[in-house]
């Protein structure tokens, strides 16, 4: 490719750089994509004039990209709000279960009828193989693991 080709290509890229200089993250992505656009066009035998014509004025091109980025932020914000609500919901359930387990434990009666040192002490076997407080505590732990796992997964996705 001639020097003139690269000069025109670089001129366009520099104008885009100038337009998006206040958004470094967006600029980095756009520059990568812009280089791919020029390279792919060249690969398919398309002239630089045709690509630049299709891209349009750098100001208009950047305005379109900015508008898209705004929409992207709104999509990300909605997704993030939903994730926050789910995490908070799971956290509240976890706290409620663990607190309930503690309350049940505090009010739980002994399984014995009669005094602890009495001769007629009778042990009552519960209907379930575990106490309600233990069940609530285990459920609380399960939700705690679910909350932490969900939070870590969401952080990794970002």
């Amino acid at each position: 490719m001639s020097n003139k080709y690269f000069h025109r290509r670089n001129t366009y890229i520099n104008q885009v750089k100038k337009q998006l200089s206040d958004s470094p993250g967006l600029l980095k992505r756009v520059l990568r994509d812009l280089n791919e656009i020029f390279d792919s066009a060249e690969e398919h035998g398309e002239s630089l004039e045709t690509v630049i014509y299709r891209l349009g004025d750098p100001k208009e091109f950047c305005a379109g990209i900015r508008a898209g980025a705004e929409g992207e932020k709104s999509v990300e914000s909605k997704t993030s709000q939903k994730s926050h609500r789910i995490t908070i919901g799971l956290g509240v359930i976890t706290a409620a279960l663990i607190i309930s387990a503690k309350i049940f434990k505090a009010f739980q009666h002994d399984d014995y009828i009669g005094g602890a040192d009495a001769m007629t002490q009778i042990k009552v076997f519960p209907f379930m193989p575990f106490t309600i407080s233990a069940g609530l505590f285990v459920a609380g732990l399960f939700f705690l693991v679910a909350t932490v796992s969900f939070y870590i997964l969401k952080q990794k996705k970002r």
């Binding site: 756009v30 656009i37 299709r54 891209l55 379109g64 990209i65 980025a69 992207e72």
Partner: peptide
């Protein structure tokens, strides 16, 4: 045009 399609691609990617 690239100026129209790329922003849509960005949004579709952001939406997952």
């Amino acid at each position: 045009k690239e100026g129209t399609i790329y922003p849509i691609l960005y949004r579709l990617e952001a939406a997952g």
